[in-house]
Design a protein around this nucleic acid. Structure first.
Lengths: 232, 232
DNA sequence: ACGACTTTGTGCGCTCGTTCACAAGCGCAT
DNA sequence: ATGCGCTTGTGAACGAGCGCACAAAGTCGT
């Protein structure tokens, strides 16, 4: 019954988070016409340890050839399949402000099977506009469209004040994956995934390290490694 | 010489990454006029375990009162100070395309001591435009401005192809904190921090889980907890 | 055909972070 | 003043993930 023994049993979250990075590095190699790559080369391209890379890939199956490396094309296909990029993922963006505009026009969406199929906003002055070839629809339309299984991923690009309400509507409409750009915590029922992209948080983390570096410079203590921290 | 015993000795990265979330939750409470909060309440507001919250806060010092909770105003101040938000952080944005525009106009920047002071682009058709009150300058101006210690954080909002070059220029100009929106790995020398914000990666992670959920639904196995994973 | 070389896949110890559970500490009511 | 109830701060157990190091397994040259 298990259609695939490897696929079924859990891939660690940390690994899943890195697969897109590997995929991108591999795609770049493929574009340059490179057919085969060693774990060492791919690891440096992806900015990770080679052992970690190998362990990550081993979760997908034994796709490497000892003494040779990995077939680039094949690996691209396998990772893509594992991430579900062979299918088409309809995406809806809610909140067509500054950021919503940019997201709607973002080419990176289309590249990997993600397709923006609907735009929503509460602001009646925006509703009806055509952005990136799609009409901006009122938020009330959401339930109708999503109910027909047309939306897999909802992107929340509204101000924080509206985010939870918008999220609730998305969930009510059957969306089970939400990408949240609003600077707030969204609470969702079980079975719904939320990922947060938070510019402000990232800046504050950078500020923390920057401040620390400034202090170090002043005191002039080169104790400890104060090396680069390529933050996760 | 140690001006503050607690501040000096390392706060875990995982904790630092959560401090902005706590800060936001606390600010929201303060706006609602709430003066005191328990770890339990704050934890739920921030979407974390209360024990974790307490341990995180304990790294800043013993700022809570047993039997009572934490003083909201005071904690806001302390976290803000720890994150370096009492200072002003000059930010430069490179790459004034779709995303760069949105970032330049993003209000969240200004809110916490981050101030966009310069915009750069290589595209001569964009250079000279005024975006969000600032002129877009040619990339060659970067070294001059940054050399005078005017830029603390560089934001890379260019296509992936230009990102490494832009990053190198930023670093050469003395920038030691980079926020990277380009879908690629940036390599930087020791002492420089890079944080990545990657829309495409987040979508792919969501797709992975979505696909898995779809499989579960088909097979109809409610084994394991297939609960909500509020992803990190 | 065979040995030397290369690279994968992984067992193992270690570090880091999370969670539980509880003692220490504080305020308040009596 | 004293004891009670509440909440913090933290010791300790647990678990996840990372990286070293090496055996297994394949290729290539001779």
């Amino acid at each position: 019954m298990t259609d695939d023994p490897v696929t079924q049993r859990g891939i660690p979250d940390a690994t899943v988070a890195r697969l897109p990075v590997y995929l991108r590095a591999l795609s770049a190699l493929a574009d340059r016409g490179i057919a085969s790559v060693s774990s060492e080369e791919l690891a440096t391209a992806a900015g990770v340890n080679s052992a970690k890379l190998r362990k990550d890939l081993s979760h997908l199956g034994s796709y490497g050839v000892r003494g040779v490396g990995y077939d680039v094309e094949f690996l691209v296909h396998q990772i893509g399949r594992e991430l579900g990029l062979t299918q088409d993922w309809p995406v809806a963006i809610v909140g067509i402000g500054n950021l919503g505009h940019a997201l709607a026009g973002y080419a990176g969406f289309a590249s990997k099977g993600f397709r923006v199929v609907a735009l929503f906003d509460v602001d009646t002055t925006v509703v009806g506009d055509v952005v990136a070839g799609l009409p901006v629809r009122p938020l009330s339309d959401l339930s109708a469209l999503a109910g027909s299984e047309q939306i897999a991923i909802g992107v929340v690009a509204t101000p924080a004040a509206n985010a939870q309400d918008v999220c609730d509507r998305l969930v009510a409409a059957g969306v089970r994956s939400v990408l949240n750009f609003a600077p707030c915590v969204l609470s969702v029922p079980d079975g719904v995934d939320v990922r947060k992209v938070d510019l402000s948080t990232e800046l504050q983390i950078l500020a923390f390290h920057e401040q620390r570096k400034a202090v170090r410079d002043l005191v002039g203590t080169p104790t400890d490694e104060l090396g680069a921290r390529v933050a996760r």
